[in-house]
């Protein structure tokens, strides 16, 4: 089992294991947590075709499992784990964050209030929003 941190969420993946810089996950779990689908010629995510991480498919395919970290890095997105290989973060690339900002559509997010109730920026649609950061420190 591995814990995968992705898009501000903490996901537990039963069929997964980390080894060094590799994160082996079943294809169905890769689709569920990261939207990565297997194609005959590589992978796709959100409708876009991704090139295979290597010309040698054994580098990133093992039976029904894929090395999700390799696929992730091929997209120039950060993929790193703790020393045990049991906790992974699959981050966003600078390019995709920049593209969203350049669209000027405010990126949506969902976070809890002090009582744990979730709120999304999109709940405020129809109002002018003054989104402001703050911290106790």
């Amino acid at each position: 089992m591995v814990t995968v941190l992705i898009d501000n969420k903490i996901l537990e993946v039963e069929q997964g294991s980390g080894a060094g810089d590799q994160l082996w996950i079943s294809t169905s779990e890769a689709e569920r947590i990261a939207g990565i689908s297997r194609r005959p010629d590589g992978f796709s995510k959100d409708g876009a075709i991704l090139p295979a991480p290597s010309t040698n498919s054994e580098d990133f395919l093992r039976g029904d499992e894929i090395d999700l970290a390799a696929v992730w890095r091929k997209m120039n997105k950060p993929a790193l784990s703790d020393a045990s290989g049991e906790v992974w973060v699959l981050g966003a690339s600078a390019g995709e964050r920049a593209a969203v900002l350049q669209s000027l559509q405010a990126p949506d997010f969902t976070l809890p209030d002090l009582d744990g109730r979730p709120h999304s920026l999109s709940d405020f649609r129809g109002k002018k929003v003054f989104l402001v950061s703050w911290a106790s420190w």
């Binding site: 559509q105 809890p112 002090l114 989104l131 402001v132 950061s133």
Partner: peptide, 29 residues
Amino acid sequence: LVDRFHHVAELYNMVNVNQAVWIDEKGVI
């Protein structure tokens, strides 16, 4: 809202507090 992992800082490229973004009724920055 409480942002344990500074997710909003990542989304909006914030580096400090108090930093702000003005967002109109249609969700446009």
